[in-house]
Amino acid sequence: MKEEQIFQIAIDGPSGAGKSTIAQQVAKLLGIDYIDTGAMYRAIGYKILERKINLDHTEEVIDLLGKTDIDFSKGNIILDGEIVNDQIRTPEVTKMASMCSALPEVRAMLVALQRKMGQAKSVVMDGRDIGTNVLTDARYKFFMTASAQERAERRYEELVAKGQNVNFDAVLADIIKRDHDDSTRALNPLKRAEDAIELDTTGMSITEVTEKIIKEIRKNGNC
């Protein structure tokens, strides 16, 4: 792909809005790479939990980051050479990922890596601050949301399908707490970029949301 053909798609939104699923579908249809930024934070959170590192011990966190490699290949996220797709999707890792995302050291490392990926090739990225911080010049920006109830139902069904024993009320409470934490954190809080198109996916199917985004992109000559 020539440099002038490179473009970025930024998809932001709260937990459980369906960003990752939609981003993957959009990337597949456009034939470009999907970068799961949320999974990158989850990978860091997973490693911190595994190593039993205290987030208050900044030097230990920085040392761990310096010895961490994260990559994507064939739909898999690879942490230090190991595929960790399932390991990073537990409630414990979800909470730790949110905590890690508030640490300047963690964000600096991952944001630098994400920007490098976006400069090298056409990509779809989803997360909390892609359009407002990571890819501020992205050609296409979308902000996906849905009611807390629906997002909790989606997450609950996903976890149950994976055989995890979870309580719906606990999942809903976690969604609401994460919304508050992500939106009020001092460092790059969750918010819609001024030039982003907002999509409320409540009651919409994956196909409907995907088609809406693809239609918007094709309006500008990319397909």
Rank of each mutant, 00 (worst) to 15 (best):
K19A: 02
A102D: 09
L110G: 00
L135G: 00
G203S: 06
A161Q: 06
A196C: 11
G38K: 00
G66C: 05
D33E: 15
R192T: 09
R107L: 06
G16T: 14
I130V: 14
A170R: 11
M117P: 02
M96T: 07
D169A: 08
I22W: 01
K67Y: 06
G38F: 03
I53N: 11
Y41N: 10
T184C: 03
D129G: 08
G66I: 08
S73A: 13
R178S: 11
T94A: 14
T207H: 08
A196H: 02
D129N: 10
L79A: 15
R42T: 00
A173E: 13
R107Y: 07
I77N: 02
G221P: 06
K74Y: 06
R155V: 03
I77Q: 04
G221C: 14
T94V: 10
D182Y: 02
I176C: 08
S183L: 10
A108W: 07
T58V: 13
L79Y: 13
H180Y: 04
I11C: 09
A170T: 13
L110N: 00
I22K: 01
T58D: 06
I176Q: 10
Q114N: 14
A170C: 10
M1N: 14
E153C: 10
I197Y: 11
I197S: 09
M99T: 05
Q164F: 04
I130S: 01
A108C: 07
G31H: 14
I62E: 13
Y34D: 04
I83N: 12
E4M: 13
R139H: 04
N165M: 12
D56R: 08
I32H: 13
D33C: 12
V134A: 01
I9G: 00
I130N: 00
G18W: 00
L135I: 04
N85R: 07
G13I: 00
E105W: 07
E216F: 04
N220R: 13
I22V: 10
D169W: 09
N188D: 11
V166A: 10
T207Q: 08
K47G: 01
S147L: 02
Q5W: 11
K141L: 05
G75I: 06
D69T: 11
E157I: 07
V171R: 03
I44Q: 00
G163W: 14
L172T: 15
T210G: 02
S147H: 04
S147A: 12
M40R: 05
D182P: 07
M1F: 14
K28S: 15
Y46M: 11
K219E: 10
N76S: 14
E50A: 12
A17C: 11
R107C: 05
V93Q: 15
Q5G: 15
G127R: 00
M99I: 03
M204T: 09
G75T: 12
D129L: 02
S183H: 10
A170I: 11
R128Q: 09
